[in-house]
């Protein structure tokens, strides 16, 4: 069984992002880039399924500029068997990525696609659901547990108010939530091995899909800052402030 795992190259989780002075974008010059953390969880899950012997091949896919090769190598260092770069230098929005992934799915014929529930740059939380709709596949978003069998997948999802378990036939799309697993660190030998794994590049414009951005960002601004408040001396002082100054209790 083949599993496809899309991975996105994003600003590293630990970078404090700043807005540019001209308010056109955030400043991404010289910041560290890494694999989107939710996608790491997706790679980890796919690799674990392979280690359990249920999955035979894990294919990582990334859509974006040539630098996404690094992200694919990271996925291969974690255990993905090969990588596919769908190369495009322009801005790719979730609908465009879903269409590119659809073209890749049609070519590769995976039984399961596992992807992160959202990317930590645009926080869209769309691509997995969009791909599932375009393929007319079932979806299980925000997964905290995945049980894969030969012809179906049972997924526990984190929903508002608790957990929900869905069972669905394959092929299907699963998007990962934080508690699905803890991704492994790639070891040095595996990083070296990953360099020799196959990585194919497909030019996005050869896939015959419309990837033009539909949303234009006209301004990026700092959110209103919260002024730090005061320290109170003790519980009595706190209560006094809440009652008489803030008037919230």
């Amino acid at each position: 069984m083949k599993v496809l795992v899309p991975v996105k190259r994003v600003v590293d989780y630990n970078v404090k992002v700043r807005v540019k002075a001209d308010e056109t974008d955030v400043d991404l010059a010289n910041v560290k880039m890494s694999m989107n953390p939710f996608d790491e969880i997706a790679v980890e899950e796919a690799v674990r399924l392979k280690e359990k012997g249920i999955v035979s091949e894990v294919v990582a896919v990334s859509c974006g500029p040539a630098a996404c090769q690094d992200t694919l190598r990271s996925a291969m260092a974690m255990g993905a068997d090969r990588g596919i770069l769908v190369e495009s230098d322009g801005e790719l929005q979730p609908l465009a990525v879903a269409k590119l992934l659809k073209a890749v799915c049609e070519k590769e014929g995976p039984s399961l696609l596992i992807c992160g529930k959202q990317a930590i740059d645009d926080d869209s939380n769309q691509t997995g659901q969009m791909l599932a709709a375009l393929m007319d596949w079932p979806q299980a978003t925000f997964a905290s547990k995945v049980e894969l069998a030969a012809d179906k997948v049972t997924v526990t999802r984190e929903i508002d108010g608790g957990l929900e378990t869905l069972a669905m036939a394959l092929p299907a799309v699963v998007t990962t939530d934080l508690r699905l697993n803890e991704p492994r660190y790639a070891t040095l030998p595996n990083i070296m091995k990953a360099k020799k794994k196959p990585l194919d590049t497909i030019a996005a414009d050869t896939l015959g899909v419309d990837i033009a951005p539909r949303l234009k960002t006209i301004k990026v601004s700092e959110p209103p800052k919260r002024a730090g408040g005061v320290k109170v001396a003790d519980v009595a002082d706190l209560l006094n402030k809440l009652r008489n100054e803030a008037k919230v209790i």
Binding site: V19, L95, D122, N125, L215, V220, S221
Partner: peptide
Amino acid sequence: VAQISDIVGVVSEDTFVRPIYAGNALATVV
């Protein structure tokens, strides 16, 4: 069509404000 996720403001019929980068920035999108 695109989805405009998690809007926090409506500027006009086609223009919206939404947080990006965990709320560290607000994007106005058309």
